[in-house]
């Protein structure tokens, strides 16, 4: 039984006078304690909306409909009311956002923002809260934490801000952590520091981690299982190694072939995927990736491809998958 079990999650945005957008379309996946699950995809594939829906951060009115189940240890997070959700958020489930500067309050010192979590969920006050906050900042590798508590977000570098945000997220030892592109805004050397920190947290405390990213390199180094999203659906899910060495969906294959690699030399031509993410077919009319796909056959159009589950739970939605054993 996974810690978080997401089944058939769908999110639609409707606005008067405009086309209804189905940003997430029947996404299912599970996360076990101590496991790192990746949600991978390009902009607009619905990976962030999925995480916001699980966290209950999407507005409930104004044409937003959320369907499906997100079973977190017996509680359906999607049906929980806002008040109960406030107790869960930050204590049991926490989130790290992409841009630390816009998710920290610029006019409140770091210390107050960190202790806020401790006061709200762990009932700590005054001296004890400050002491705990210092320990937290120290744990995430911020030098001279006592002084940093009095400083404002703009006085910290990007990497330090992301560390502060992680300190806030792990303050209550959450059982599930969602990291939405946690290193995209950072430089590579700082990215390596932050990823190492996240790995440590998972290893030491058994936290389940959902890693949302577009960087396949990060996925290769971090995730145990991977879900590849395209146009709001999971088009392939597998354990890490089968996904990288035997990808079945042509989109996954294409992505792996198009990424410039550090260990491939000058002159190796890249194999880009044709067209752009805008060229999608609506799912009810067939495979959304068909307009850009090299392996397209007639059966791709007409109805959406069903999920095929193969050996060891390796699943893909494709009627003409990349043959097994083909080099990615």
């Amino acid at each position: 039984m996974p810690l978080l079990d997401v089944r058939d999650l769908s999110v639609t945005f409707a606005r008067r006078g405009q086309r209804t957008v189905r940003a997430v379309d029947g996404v299912s996946f599970g996360v076990h304690a101590g496991e790192v699950v990746g949600l991978v995809g390009e902009s607009g594939c619905g990976k962030s909306v999925t995480s916001l829906a699980i966290m209950g951060l999407l507005p409930k009115q104004r044409g937003v409909t959320i369907d499906g189940v997100a079973d977190f240890d017996g509680t359906d997070l999607l049906k929980t009311d806002a008040r109960a959700m406030r107790d869960i958020r930050g204590r049991d489930v926490a989130m790290i956002f992409q841009d630390p500067l816009s998710s920290l309050n610029p006019v409140v010192p770091i210390g107050v923002q960190v202790t806020e979590v401790l006061t709200r969920h762990r009932g700590m006050r005054g001296e004890a809260a400050t002491k705990e906050a210092t320990a937290l900042l120290d744990r995430v590798g911020i030098p001279d934490p006592a002084r940093r508590l009095k400083e404002y977000p703009h006085q910290l570098s990007g990497g330090m801000r992301q560390r502060a945000l992680i300190a806030m997220a792990v303050a209550c030892k959450p059982r599930l952590l969602i990291a939405d592109e946690p290193t995209t805004a950072l430089d590579v050397t700082i990215q390596a520091q932050i990823l190492e920190l996240l790995k440590e947290l998972v290893r030491d405390s058994g936290t389940a981690l959902i890693m949302i990213t577009h960087d396949l390199g990060v996925v290769a180094g971090m995730c145990d299982t991977v879900n590849v999203l395209y146009a709001g659906r999971v088009i392939e899910n597998a354990r890490r190694k089968p996904l990288f060495y035997e990808p079945r969906h042509p989109y996954t294959t294409g992505l792996l072939r198009s990424v410039p690699r550090l260990d491939a030399g000058r002159g190796t031509p890249l194999n880009p995927i044709r067209g752009s993410v805008r060229d999608v077919l609506p799912w009810p009319d067939g495979c959304a990736f068909a307009p850009r796909c090299d392996r397209r056959v007639d059966a791709c159009v007409g109805e959406p491809p069903a999920l095929v589950v193969g050996y060891d739970g390796h699943g893909y939605r494709c009627v003409n998958p990349t043959p097994q054993g083909a080099q990615p």
Binding site: V188, T189, Q191, D215, L216, G217, K241, D263
Partner: peptide, 22 residues
């Protein structure tokens, strides 16, 4: 520090982590 999209390479490589910021 550059991640490579290849699990075997990622598992084997020795990372040199730099301390602090620029």
């Amino acid at each position: 520090a550059v991640p490579v999209p290849d699990p075997d390479v990622e598992d084997r490589r020795e990372r040199i982590l730099l301390a602090g910021d620029l």
